[in-house]
Amino acid sequence: MDTIQIIIMIFSIFALSRVFTNIKHKNLDKLEAPFWGIFWIIIIFVALFPGLIDSFFLFIGIESATQAGLYGLIILLSYMIFRLYMKIEETERKITKIVRTIAIKDDRT
């Protein structure tokens, strides 16, 4: 097994564990959870059997590994933006909760 395969596998297993953590904390809904779960399982599978990916790429019209890497990167970046958005939303909600608590508390004092 090549080093790159090991790196991709370690990263994918880590990402998969994050998906499970988010499912546990209910940060992902019914559609997102299976999507990201299946996505990272496929990546692990591809890292284990890279030969399969060539025929798949040919089938869907991707001609080179560079092209595939680019698409992969776009998907990865999209995921990161999505996670960032979720984090900001969560933080915004927490700020609002604090602001509300202070407002109501101030009224009582």
Partner: peptide
């Protein structure tokens, strides 16, 4: 009566 948000939310 006024209930105040300390920042705009």
């Amino acid at each position: 009566r006024v209930l105040g948000h300390i920042i705009n939310r």
